[in-house]
Amino acid sequence: MELGPRDIISRAMMTEFEEGHGFEGPHGKYLHLDVRHLGEDVIDRKLPFMRELGREFVGIDIVKDPIPVRPVQHYMMGGIDADISGATPMAGLYAAGECANVGLNGANRLGSNSLPECLVFGAAAGRAAAEYASSAKPVTANPVDAILWDEARRVEVAYLEKKGGDERIGAIREEMQHEMDTGAGVFRTKEGLETLVERLGGLRQRFSRIKIEDSSRTFNTELTSAIELDFMLELSQTIALTALARDESRGAHARRDFPERNDEKYLKHSLVFHRDAGKPRLEYRDVRVGNFKPQARTY
């Protein structure tokens, strides 16, 4: 069990909490992971960083003490729609790595696949982008430039020239994190996701009233926090909407009310379009199944 895929482990841990097991800590409930049976030699050879983290940050020695653990958000499985050469539906825009969805991970990334993904698809996207750039017709007025200037102007007006406001970025971000953990965390339900969508709407409203104290043009990290929060709220809304529409459980998406996988209806990618200010539009695209057919997870 301890070496199972993370979605299964996370669910097992949450189940323990719900059944009243676990310890109470300053950051919520936690369990103990015990690696003491491995012995000092194996730990030092295979898990030196875990030992260092325990010693430096928690004040424990994992050779002698159990490790406090709990599930957390760790990776973004979806991403910008891209093919295996990193090309997105927008000509000239390429994506690779965690921000991209090339379909490698599906609904469940397996451990250690992410860094190889960066290397393999990063190289592919780089090559494809270079090819595109060298074959594209030369343009007189660079459209990318125009987009950049528009964006710069948007940021300027939305944040740097913004007056007033009474909402703190940090407070909204923290609430968003809490709401996402509760509503779209390890286990999900229809009610929980509906509440989440509503709360995220409220947070979006509050976001329009944020206060920007830093007007400096030099290394303004409050500005970047604001821009990031804007994007994160949008992504949260996207995750909540697609999770709500998916009446099944698949990989890390575990619906309490629909515990079974439904390949007939949902062997699909969810595509979300935020074209205009209105409600995001949800579409589906079939998953291309190659040599390996989806099977029941029986472990």
């Binding site: 260092e52 983290l53 430096e56 940050f57 703190r168 970025i169 940090g170 407070a171 971000r173 923290e174 206060k211 920007i212 104290e213 830093d214 400096s216 290394f219 303004n220 990290t221 409050e222 926090s225």
Partner: peptide, 21 residues
């Protein structure tokens, strides 16, 4: 520093990322 930035003074600037060395 993060407390200061989010509760007291949003204009304090510094770099950080992983919070785990």
């Amino acid at each position: 520093l993060n407390y200061i930035k989010s509760e007291v003074d949003g204009s304090l600037s510094y770099r950080w990322s992983c919070r785990m060395g």
